[in-house]
Nucleic acid binder design. Sequence first.
RNA 1: GCGCCUCUAGCUCAAUUGGCAGAGCAACGGACUCUUAAUCCGCAGGUUCUGGGUUCAAGUCCCAGGGGGCGCACCA
Length: 518
Amino acid sequence: MTSDRAAADSSTDEVAASDDDGVGRPSVPYRFPGTSPIASVTAGRDDLQAGESSGDVVTVAGRIMLSRPQGRLAFAELRDWTGSVQLFAVAASSERFDELVKLNLGDWIGVTGEVVRTKRGEVSVQVANWTLLAEARVGFGDKWRGVHDVEVRYRQREVDLWANEGVRDTFLLRSRVVSTIRRRLDARGYVEVETPVLQPLAGGAIARPFVTHFNALHADFYLRIAPELYLKRLIVGGFERVYELGRDFRNEGLSPRHNPEFTMLEAYQAYADYSDMAELVEDLVAGTASEVLGTTSLTYQGRAVDLSPPWRRATLSEVIAEVTGVECDMGMSVEELRTRAASLAVAVEAGWGPGRIIYEIYERTTEHELWGPVHVMDYPEEVSPLVRSHRSKPGVVERMTPIVGGREIAEIYSELTDPDIQRARLVAQAAARDAGDDEAMVVDEEFLRALGRGMPPTGGIGVGIDRLVMLFADVASIREVLLFPALRPEHRAAGDEIDAGGPEQSRAREPGEAAAQA
RNA sequence: GCGCCUCUAGCUCAAUUGGCAGAGCAACGGACUCUUAAUCCGCAGGUUCUGGGUUCAAGUCCCAGGGGGCGCACCA
């Protein structure tokens, strides 16, 4: 074994210093250059006939997913992140055949050999030389059924990615969605910026923050719940089109649609209003779907979603009437609206104005019934402290919330730019906070000072990237689009490994034993 | 935080009313020159999540705790 190993290593330009790592394990090279993606190796082989050799010698590397030794022949499935190919080994011509057939499922190897088609018609790499790249000392799941225990899937995502078809595709899709959105924004002249995640005040949204301590400043800081206020300060500073695509943190419950840290796109454009920004959202969503999925006609959880713009726009009152049959209007008296809320079994708190009541009715009765795409608009001022008042309708603001596939996937504003009005709104929020609403906003003097220097008319959007990916990937849980979703920490003693007992024991050898076998 | 459900071999799952804890795959040993979840023979594998309790007898019933899922609430 020692001499064989050395021979294998000499075929690369990296040679391990010794045969094992000091604990009886075989050594592996430091690099394995010159590999071709498996997808490129198998592509364009249609004219290769069964039993024929192509003459092309390739080097591929990946993980052994299936193994079918058959006497003096052996077959295996080798998979890299582009695809799979069958390995075909022959005892008479394949290097270290006996060792090759003893490899375990999950082991990584590099292989050099000719591309052939077997007598039974499978395009294969006929193994000439091969090199062990890594052992799977902890076993993977059932080779056919995969791993379905969601706890294992989320806690040990590396297992999930290999054992379950499609999981890797979902995350590759996510990556393409994010890069496509960036490219589309860049093409529109937006610049990407990075603003603080650690903030002295958690502003820009209505949510409970995570708190941490900044030792050097002797102060508690907050993980951002939104970058909004900083991005608006950049608009004041003359950055006319900015976006930030990053993580926000909200100290709230977990659910199939909520993870405490999630990915948000926020974009702001000077001289634009919420109609302009609605078109941007439609273009980002539908355009990205076209690029990444090749269509704007999706199916989400068995139901059709047509993303092609323009999307319908409807007011809160309109959608409430459609869903419940009850007419509600901002012009109605509080008493009238309370009666209508009561008729819908919606609880109303004392002191709520007409807008707050209508919003509550919408959330309780209507929002979860909408499928979309539809921009829900004319939100009440009371629940939208950072949004500019409607240019013609009293009591409401210029805000749209697009519902797509039954979920809010974005917020779209004509931004409030007047420092005095903004101060009044934030003071009202602070009062609510003092009255016990610990999710209400605080007064951010730095932000208000910035507005005082003049903020041009500006449109802004926030897009929930996780939910967008859920829509595109047609999955019901946010955990399916987060590589490592939030879970309770594992409380397990050292050495109490979940998968102990795979190929582990059989491979634990005395240090001298490997050499003795040579 | 509350409610409901769930936890059995490395993985996927069985186990009748409370009656000897099992199978397939993986792993391990062997056979096999065209396999496709190869097949065949053999071997081994368990704190039934944890701790109590009831019982002649508990994977199963009861209590407490832990992990996970779903729902409610909050939100994107």
